[in-house]
Design a protein around this nucleic acid. Structure first.
Lengths: 333, 333
DNA sequence: CTGTTAGCGCTTTCAT
DNA sequence: ATGAAAGCGCTAACAG
């Protein structure tokens, strides 16, 4: 039988409202505070979120929507976000849309039905429509990796142009002239932006140039095929850059299967850290997203928004990717 | 402003208790039912889980604890469990312990604090202690992949002995005599059981035998090292079996790195489907756990337990692994 | 099968 | 800075 304010009242003599105030961080005299704290500890008191939610509409719960649980990026974000929220006393409903527009909408409605205090979403759907109904009910959303236009909301994104440029500048420094970039059409802007960043160093023609290999989807399968097609006929490319995790994994796997060695046969820059990164020899040079920081900022933005209400204008935080050096790029300079 | 029973009452004239009964699946006359349904639809009524939870102690929320978000197994279980619970109106708090005993305890306490109706856990800690306090408060737990001894709780496990035996019998059928098995010490019984199942076909010595490669941990790193050490000196082994996902991934990666081809140079049976399975050529032969079924059964057991109370004796469901044929095993027969 | 009534544990005016 | 009292929306006796 869990203890309640009444039990604390019996032990301390203070009224329910004073006790309530203490637990809501309002001003209470020092001795009062000490007495309540002592009683709470003694009783192993844990506030009843249902009663609190019923009265104050604060659920102490957040919904996290991710497109797929298979991706490293999502997994890392989920781990961090869940941990940070838990430390602040917030429960975290996690749902994945499985890259399905309809499910994404269902999940958002589900979160609304569960009266979450806020939503963190790595959206799959470029249409902010689904989030409109959350907004109407005063439930704030923070987007990760996507700044939905025409929808005022907080967001944490990375500078994808810079991510592409980092890879290309590194390759140029190492003396590579003829390179290839593997990207894909994408419902998201991030991949085209990475492509553009890369092309700013390696235009399609000229002294130092790149071959664009644009696939239909950003999947392991397409990354794999890209390499196989590239090496089906002779080429004089000295380096390859992949623009996301799945393409990197697929491409890497194809290189291994074909027995193409890096950096001897080809130089290679991947995107994000593969799960098996620690055992890959030589280590891959990669462009990495600061996943932990993304998660931290997203949680910060959301909790501030929850506490402050809808007032402040939306904030879009753009974080920097970083280049992690391995030994998969040959020095031709 | 969300609607309440009172609004439905105004539209239908029925009492709050009748309306409550309808929403709790109790018997109500057909016309009553229709009237309430119509009013509910019209009002876009959504039951208030806080009020319900406050009165009835039903939170419509379940806690899912997994050891790590990096594992495919956990990811698949999470996806399925989350989906099934959502379809039944249950929210699902997901937390990972990051393979840390202390965090596992924290998470369980957190779930208890959040008054979840039940817990599904892929436990890391072999000590059921942490779950005792949940039990005391009437919160049932369903374990996945582990039947904690001396702790009465429902569980869904697979027949790990059979999993090992499947691999070995397949290899024997294909004419393999000298094989190796990569396993690890483990806080869980599952890996030793897989080992024993395998050894029932290939004892340590005799006409058909196996070399045991027992690593300290069941990690990608150790799987990788196992292969590298095995091939550091000449051997006459014709087939290798790995006993879990991480060991398989590490071993596979090492084979690729060393340029050892299957099934020509060595035959290989993995455990569970790798994320990049679709692009691996030739396809790997693997022993697979029926992840979807495990998730379905776990949710079934938990919801039944939640609805029926603590009464019934615990049920342990043992599911069968299956052998998925690829082309990574040579036919020597 | 349906209605009446009394709270669940907390927050929130309104006082003091 | 603290107290008294009302009530959030629902469920669970109890009564009929």
């Amino acid at each position: 039988m869990p203890s309640t304010y009444k039990d604390i009242q019996k032990l301390t003599g203070f009224s329910l409202s004073t006790i309530s105030r203490y637990f809501n961080g309002e001003n209470v005299k020092a001795p009062t505070k000490d007495a309540i704290e002592k009683a709470a500890k003694q009783l192993d008191f844990k506030i009843n979120d249902f009663a609190r939610g019923l009265r104050s509409k604060k659920a102490m719960t957040v919904g996290l929507l991710i497109p797929s649980l298979q991706s490293m990026f999502s997994a890392t974000i989920m781990h961090q976000v869940g941990k940070l929220l838990r430390q602040q006393g917030y429960g975290c409903f996690v749902c994945d849309s499985n890259n399905d527009l309809k499910v994404e909408k269902e999940v958002i409605d589900f979160f609304i039905g569960k009266s979450v205090d806020g939503i963190i979403s790595i959206p799959f759907d470029p249409d902010p429509q689904n989030y409109q109904s959350a907004k109407k009910r005063g439930i704030p959303t923070v987007f990760i990796n996507r700044n939905l236009e025409s929808f005022d909301a907080d967001a944490v994104i990375i500078d994808n142009y810079k991510a592409g440029k980092m890879a290309s500048e590194h390759l140029l420094t190492k003396g590579h002239k003829k390179t290839a970039i593997i990207a894909s059409f994408s419902r998201f802007l991030s991949l085209p932006e990475r492509l553009n960043g890369y092309l700013s160093t390696y235009p399609k023609s000229g002294d130092a140039f790149s071959t664009e290999i644009i696939r239909k989807n950003n999947t392991i399968y397409e990354g794999n095929l890209a390499i196989k097609e590239l090496f089906a006929s002779p080429n004089d490319i000295s380096a390859i850059f992949c623009t996301n995790y799945e393409l990197t994994l697929g491409a890497f796997s194809a290189l291994r299967e074909l027995g193409i060695k890096f950096p001897e046969d080809i130089s290679f820059i991947g995107f994000d850290k593969l799960q098996m990164a620690e055992v890959i020899r030589p280590a891959l040079t990669i462009v990495e997203q600061p996943m932990e920081e993304i998660a931290i900022k997203a949680v910060e933005l959301l909790l501030e928004r929850i506490k402050s209400g809808e007032s402040a204008p939306p904030r879009v935080l753009e974080l920097n990717p970083k280049l992690t050096l391995g030994n998969s790029v040959a020095d031709l300079s």
